[in-house]
Amino acid sequence: MENRYAVGPEQTKQFTTEQLRNEFLMESLFVSGEINMVYSHYDRVVVGGAIPTGSTLKLDAGDFLRTDYFLERREIGIVNIGPKGTVNVDGEVYELNKRDCLYIGLGKKEVTFESEDTSNPARFYFVSALAHKEYPTRVLPIAEAEPTKLGSDAESNNRTIYKYIHSEGIQSCQLMMGMTLLEPNNMWNTMPAHIHDRRMEVYLYFDMEEESRVFHFMGQPHETRHLVVKNEQAILSPPWSIHSGVGTNNYTFIWAMAGENYTFKDMDFVKMEDLK
């Protein structure tokens, strides 16, 4: 488990590109045969990736969380971004095809990951947040998730949003999670930009070609920065920061949020003329 402390906007203004990447970019979540995790002090989220290639991989933070088991005080959302796999939750097995989501609530003691075909393994991405109440474990296949169409080809942001974990979908304490798919020849997401100072967000960019890149924009609206992101890399987005991106090709990304408000209505939109 890698530990990352929160930094503020004034400190971030002084960062070099390397410092910016070290604080906010997660470059190596997905490693064959391993679970890799990052603990962020922004709303205490844990971000991770698991690729089971041999033996079963167990969700275990060792002594980092100082709890008896990972979900003792937490909830978690898991999305499979690869071939078919299974997640075993206290003896109950849940199958996940590509882009299916699984929510596991507070108090489940044992969570393990397996691939149906270890030579072509599943790729599990997960985000965990603190929880105060147990909600039922639930699978939501992407085929059953309600799609929302936004944007247009003229704006280069024709996209479909699938909401998995939210107030009208899978219930949770504070974790919100979903996925956005951009249509071919569309590259922009979330522009005009916005901030939500009451909750942080995590972006995972995937389904990208090896040579493709996303230029992820962050920072305060009047003091923006950018990070160059490859396939299957993730970004920690602080509550004070915009979070928007443009790719060299179309791409898919998973967004997850945790914090004060359990709503999509607390966003503060930024006028294009105010971005600098």
Rank of each mutant, 00 (worst) to 15 (best):
P239M: 11
V127W: 06
E211M: 08
Q14P: 00
V229N: 06
R4H: 05
P9T: 10
D100N: 12
S28G: 09
L71M: 10
T180G: 03
S32H: 11
E223H: 13
T148R: 12
M257H: 02
T118R: 02
A131E: 04
Y162E: 02
S237M: 08
S212F: 01
L106N: 11
E95S: 14
E146Y: 05
N158G: 03
V89Y: 00
G245K: 11
A193R: 09
K13S: 09
K230C: 08
L130T: 10
A50I: 01
T148A: 14
F30Y: 07
T148Y: 15
R213G: 02
S32E: 15
H216C: 13
T53Y: 01
G62D: 13
G219Y: 03
I254A: 08
V270M: 01
K84E: 15
V46Q: 08
M176V: 09
N185Y: 14
R66H: 09
S40V: 05
L140T: 12
M26N: 11
K108M: 08
G33K: 06
W255F: 12
N120A: 14
S212N: 09
E75P: 02
Y135V: 00
V87N: 05
E27F: 08
R159T: 03
G82D: 07
V89P: 07
I161S: 03
T12H: 04
S32K: 14
S244V: 14
K84A: 13
C173P: 04
V229H: 13
K84H: 04
W240R: 02
E260Y: 01
V45A: 02
N189P: 05
R138W: 01
V228N: 04
E155I: 10
I165T: 10
C101I: 06
E92N: 13
M208I: 13
F217A: 07
E75R: 02
W255I: 06
G49P: 06
Q11I: 12
L175D: 01
V38C: 14
T86R: 05
D266T: 14
H226L: 15
P141Q: 09
G105R: 00
I242C: 03
D43E: 15
K98S: 05
R66Q: 15
N157K: 15
A129F: 00
A131V: 05
K265F: 04
E232S: 10
T263K: 06
L65S: 05
Y203E: 01
D266M: 10
